[in-house]
């Protein structure tokens, strides 16, 4: 009749033991370290061909020498500019259209089917059109970015605008809030959590499409540098640039999450962590 926990404990106990915050942080660090070690060791042992996949140390030294060139910073600035403009336009369109679609039932019914049709079309399918219209300049890539990134924002904002609580609405009406006052003080704060989610998704998608446009269309930026590095056989350099795009994506996510915490401190998704 021994129902003792200790007797059941196998040597793999740590697999199903819940972790505390410190343990979780260490597990995360350990994961990154193991990944980096693999990147270094696998090419050296010949498990992957070092000609196509140079060891991490080479990639890092290529990165360091890249960082010293003005071309790199120019490309980074170009990518960030394209991304920023594209994201800005997408957010503006998404917010306005989302509020209209979410807030006005007639507009919602009028646009729903069309949006459901247009939304799944991959933005990259418009590359030939973009090139025809704008050549290889920034505008061509902006077209791709906006087409891809506008949906996340639009859909989220329109969900948010439909989510205004009926009791909150009645409260606003019974206290005779003017229409614009209700929009700013009731609708916008309700939409905000949705908009922040939409913004995070849009920001990631916009970055992906910015790099894609540079890779395929040849709009100036990091993507174009990657193509040049590949064509000139600078394999380590190519990986170095890929790493940079990875860090860029990470940075975008971290910054948006920090913003989220500030703006939505009152929201259920954030406030639990803040309490104590």
């Amino acid at each position: 009749m021994s129902n003792n926990v200790a007797t059941r404990r196998s040597w793999l106990w740590f697999l199903w033991t819940p972790l505390n915050a410190v343990q979780r942080a260490w597990a995360g660090v350990a994961g990154v370290v193991v990944f980096l070690v693999c990147l270094q060791v696998l090419p050296l042992t010949g498990a992957v061909d070092p000609k196509h996949t140079p060891p991490l140390s080479e990639v890092i030294s290529a990165l360091v020498s890249r960082l010293a060139t003005p071309q790199f910073w120019e490309a980074l600035l170009n990518t960030l500019t394209t991304w920023g403009i594209g994201l800005g336009i997408s957010v503006a369109i998404g917010v306005v259209a989302g509020l209209l679609i979410g807030g006005i039932p007639v507009v919602r019914e009028f646009t729903a089917s069309t949006i459901e049709f247009l939304r799944p079309i991959p933005s990259v399918a418009f590359i030939p059109l973009a090139v025809l219209l704008y050549g290889t300049g920034r505008d061509a890539t902006l077209l791709l970015i906006i087409y891809a990134a506008v949906w996340q924002m639009l859909i989220q904002v329109s969900y948010g605008a439909q989510d205004v609580d009926p009791v909150a609405r009645d409260t606003a009406r019974s206290y005779r809030f003017p229409k614009g006052f209700t929009l700013i003080n009731v609708v916008v704060p309700t939409v905000l959590p949705y908009a922040v989610t939409g913004f995070r998704l849009s920001a990631s998608v916009a970055l992906i499409l910015a790099i894609t446009g540079e890779l395929i269309i040849g709009t100036p930026g990091l993507g174009k540098l990657i193509v040049i590095a590949q064509e000139s056989g600078a394999v380590a350099s190519m990986y170095a640039l890929v790493l940079v795009t990875g860090f860029l994506g990470l940075a975008v996510n971290v910054i948006v999450r920090m913003m989220e915490r500030r703006v939505l401190h009152w929201h259920a998704s954030v406030r639990r962590e803040g309490m104590k």
Partner: peptide, 24 residues
């Protein structure tokens, strides 16, 4: 209203909630 939790605005402090109709 009966549903106080939905009638108050969670993004405003207590004082801001009370003051909002006056602001309007």
């Amino acid at each position: 209203f009966q549903e106080y939790a939905r009638s108050l605005f969670p993004w405003l402090t207590i004082a801001q909630n009370v003051a909002l109709p006056l602001k309007a």
